[in-house]
Amino acid sequence: MLYAGFMSADLPPLPNSEEPVDTPQLLTVGSAVDEPCLRADAARNRARLLEAATRLIAEHGVAGVTMEAVAAEAGVGKGTVFRRFGDRTGLLTALLDHSARTLQADFLGGPPPLGPGAPPVERLRAFGVAVLYRTAEQLDLRLAAQPDPTRRFSHPSVRALHTHVTMLLRQILPDADCDLLAQTLMASLDPALINHLTRQCGMPMERLEKGWLALVDRVTGTGV
């Protein structure tokens, strides 16, 4: 399955409410271990190919991502794409890996309000908005990569996001069942639901964004 290996490292258990929750620490995902060993030109080629594939998905969907199309979009030979990713599945897996690490870097160590430095409720609001729009941008890819139902909530990539939301909730509502509340909040950010609401129900992203902000306010009791 494509999604297997998206995040290979096991995540640590959810922290206790007494533990610090704002220390940036990028989670290990997929091929991240390999990337520091790449030559500078190889790293640039990899980034260039991933950017080209991302553009193709935005314009033509996942079906438009072939090794030949990515090579043409990036202005390199087809052999370069095969050497870097092996095959189409390897390329798509690398796209998900890259997207996950970028989001994690932003909410663990990026500028506020998504990153550290803003009040936890503001970070929670910004987190959901970021996930909504990034999921919408790569919706076909994320739908194709959905794990099977028995692994849907236990998969490391889902646990990473759940852990972050739980930690923020523990700062806002220290006496609440934040683990369960995080599951409730994350359910509204599910790619399948976003697909249903935007493509099948015709809802604009602005409505989903307002819905997330309202949900956070109601769950945390911080609405004005």
Rank of each mutant, 00 (worst) to 15 (best):
Q104C: 12
P113C: 03
A130H: 13
V131H: 07
P111Y: 07
L132M: 12
R134N: 14
L124Y: 02
G110C: 09
Y133F: 13
V121P: 01
P111R: 13
A136E: 12
Q104F: 08
A105V: 03
A105K: 09
G117Y: 05
L139W: 07
P119E: 13
L114R: 10
P120G: 09
T135D: 07
E122P: 00
A126H: 02
V121C: 04
F127W: 15
V121D: 13
L139Q: 06
P119T: 02
Y133K: 14
G117P: 03
P120F: 06
Q138F: 08
G115H: 03
L124F: 04
L108T: 12
R123Y: 06
P113L: 00
G109Y: 06
G128W: 07
A118F: 01
P120M: 08
E122R: 09
R134P: 01
R125C: 08
L114T: 09
T135Q: 12
A136C: 09
A130M: 11
P113H: 09
D140K: 06
L114D: 11
R125D: 12
R134S: 13
P119F: 00
G128V: 04
A105C: 09
L132Y: 14
E122Q: 14
P119N: 04
L132V: 04
V121R: 11
V129W: 00
P119C: 06
P120I: 02
A118Y: 01
L132A: 07
Q104N: 15
A118I: 11
P116C: 10
T135W: 05
A130T: 14
R123D: 02
E122A: 13
R123P: 03
G110M: 06
L114V: 11
A136S: 14
T135A: 13
Y133I: 13
G109L: 08
P112A: 14
A118E: 05
Y133R: 15
G128E: 09
D106R: 15
Y133T: 15
T135V: 14
L124K: 01
L114M: 10
T135E: 11
L139T: 13
G115F: 00
R134Y: 07
G115Y: 00
D106E: 15
A118R: 02
Q138N: 15
F127A: 03
G115Q: 03
A130V: 11
G128A: 10
V129S: 11
L139S: 09
E137P: 00
G109E: 11
P113T: 04
L114W: 10
V121M: 02
L124G: 03
P120E: 11
L124H: 05
T135I: 12
P112H: 11
P119M: 04
V131W: 05
V129G: 08
F127C: 02
G117S: 04
P120H: 05
P111Q: 14
A118M: 07
D140V: 04
Q104S: 13
L139D: 08
L139G: 11
P113D: 05
L132P: 07
A130Y: 03
E122M: 08
Y133G: 01
E137W: 04
G110V: 05
F127S: 01
A130N: 07
Q138K: 12
A136T: 10
V121L: 06
V131G: 00
G117H: 09
Q138V: 10
A130K: 10
D106S: 14
P111F: 08
